[in-house]
Design a protein around this nucleic acid. Structure first.
Lengths: 147, 147
DNA sequence: TATAAAGTATACTAAAATAGTAGACAATAT
DNA sequence: ATATTGTCTACTATTTTAGTATACTTTATA
């Protein structure tokens, strides 16, 4: 029941891009270095994200990638879905035919509830939220101490 | 992000046992047949469930397995945990040391929230609940039709 | 317009996890 | 005594995941 590196690395890469947010594209090489992901593997993650319209790329010298939409409009559920495929904990949620029991299977119902619980979390978190969380961790609000 | 067959088969096997609930042990061979799981594979699932005190077994002729506790005291979270290992979607939840970023990683925080959402579902469903859901599906309450 | 610096695409390989099988062994009801 | 049933350990096959390699395309800019 583990997420693969694809979703993990991919989310980190996207957060990285969001944090560099300027008008200039961010080079894959830089992302790879900062995030400790091999450039070649990162490319595998970037391609589907481009196809899905999460990021866009500029080829050639001074090229790189950038968010295709505002960070506030990129939901984590979308990212995970693109990189991980469906989050369904069991095949029979999406394709009931794989098991003749599906229609009457109560355990299947449970896995569906589990999926929905996960979805609910991921649907409500955007890249922008991640950026804010990051900022908060990096620069915590000064705390007042009362003596 | 798939559950393995272990948790799926295991839950079904336990529900099967709960449904046969009598004082007599249920034979593994029967469970295997009803649930379409090879006997040998089922044995792999049964062993850890016995160790964990979910079921107990009687060896020898007329032997089999039975619930070691009332179905209402067996939570799905426990079953999944035994058969699947932790449900953590990423290694770094349980073992932050696997990644030097853990302490400052905001994506990790998200995966932790996802885990908690899943846990919340599985903690609240017992084998007894599954039995009741099953009964409901099999013998739906008669519905009044108003003309 | 040549060229270096990027991203793109496809194919391959290694490693790990998952799923499943086989067979000898141990306990027990009858 | 013995047939029936669970137990244990070892092995194997398959699939998925992770990662590497290499040739190719695009483009800024000198």
């Amino acid at each position: 029941m583990k997420l693969s590196t694809r979703a993990r690395y991919g989310s980190r890469a996207l957060l990285d891009i969001a944090l560099q947010s300027s008008d200039e594209p961010v080079q894959l090489k830089e992302i790879a270095q900062r995030e400790d992901i091999s450039l070649q593997y990162l490319e595998h993650l970037v391609t589907p994200l481009i196809s899905a319209g999460i990021i866009r790329s500029q080829r050639g010298a001074k090229g790189g990638v950038m968010l295709a939409r505002p960070a506030s409009e990129i939901k984590l559920s979308e990212i995970v879905n693109i990189l991980e495929g469906t989050i369904d904990p069991v095949e029979c949620i999406e394709h009931p035919d794989v098991c003749e029991r599906s229609h009457s299977c109560v355990t299947r119902d449970i896995w569906d509830e589990v999926k929905k619980a996960m979805d609910a979390v991921l649907e409500n978190i955007t890249l922008q939220n991640l950026v804010e969380r990051y900022m908060k961790k990096e620069k915590p609000e000064p705390v007042m101490y009362y003596i």
